[in-house]
């Protein structure tokens, strides 16, 4: 396991250097943005917010003041999407591996198809066929389309890695189907379910494409508000809003990585 990879020293160093350069390039704009949010706003001259918004606390108070409603919406959406995605996706994923039925393979690959359908196209067609439905429901549906594939893949992979004989053993010890599920299957799948919840959260929190298309002045998620900030507010306010957006997802990303979540490699719809 720990054998050397056999790359000559020079090539290895060059590879590591390239990786460091890439990481720095990706981090630079974030660092610049963070500096913007934590510097004295007056440095940036005449700004649309007027003179009242100067110190760092001012900036964040201003952001939460104008976009508090959108923040709340985002929290509501996430609170509905996370449990729904788990409730719909996890049992199906278990079924695909443990109780396959005619057409289950096809269904499994169909669940992954939305990942390659552009969000704008899907959002548009959703409005076309169900424009009369409550917008909030459409919003949730749009988020589910892009998060369910992650739940299905994560849970299915986890089901694959545990020995099916564990479930048989529980049955042989007299546990019924429900009891087996509650006492063996669900506990064994807990890490995968937690990981799925984090993945769903990260994607749903940041989803813009469908949300923006479905947004109404009263139903705006925080990423949609972020867009408005970018187009109307000054740099310090935009930077502060960006940090407010990132505050919950960065810990989520760290947790996802700690749990070894590979399904996040597709990231957010850009």
């Amino acid at each position: 396991m720990r054998a050397a990879t056999g790359f000559p020293g020079g090539l290895r160093r060059a590879g590591i250097a390239a990786t460091v350069v890439l990481a720095l390039a990706l981090l630079t704009p974030i660092v610049v943005t963070a500096t913007g949010a934590f510097s004295r706003a007056e440095w940036y001259g005449q700004r649309s917010e007027g003179a009242g918004v100067e110190t760092v606390p001012d900036l964040f108070r201003y952001v939460t003041g104008i976009w508090g409603g959108a923040l709340l919406r985002s929290v509501q959406v996430v609170a509905v999407v996370v449990p729904l995605a788990l409730a719909i996706g996890a049992p199906a994923a278990w079924a695909f591996r443990r109780r396959p039925f005619p057409g289950s393979r096809l269904l499994e690959s169909a669940a992954l198809v939305p990942l390659s359908v552009p969000g704008v196209a899907l959002g548009f067609s959703l409005i076309q066929v169900a424009g009369g439905a409550p917008r909030f429901a459409l919003l949730v549906a749009g988020h589910l389309v892009y998060t369910l594939p992650m739940v299905v893949k994560t849970v299915a992979n986890a089901v694959e890695t545990f020995d099916p004989r564990l479930e048989s053993a529980a049955r042989s010890l007299g546990a019924g189907e429900w009891e087996t599920a509650a006492r063996v299957t669900v506990p064994l799948l807990t890490p995968a379910l937690v990981l799925s919840a984090l993945l769903v959260f990260a994607v749903s929190w940041g989803e813009f494409n469908v949300s923006f298309l479905l947004a109404t002045p009263l139903l705006q998620t925080f990423p949609a508000a972020l867009y408005l900030t970018y187009t109307t507010n000054s740099f310090p306010v935009a930077a502060a809003a960006t940090l407010v957006f990132l505050a919950p997802v960065v810990p989520a990303l760290l947790a996802i990585q700690a749990l070894g979540g590979e399904e996040f490699h597709r990231g957010l719809p850009a």
């Binding site: 990706l26 940041g206 813009f208 972020l226 957006f245 997802v249 989520a252 957010l268 719809p269 850009a270």
Partner: peptide, 22 residues
């Protein structure tokens, strides 16, 4: 390094656009 490189996975498109403007 891996964490730094994966950080932008949590960015929506508008945020990336904004970073480019920055």
């Amino acid at each position: 390094l891996r964490t730094a490189i994966s950080l932008p996975l949590t960015f929506s498109g508008v945020l990336v656009g904004f970073l480019m403007v920055v």
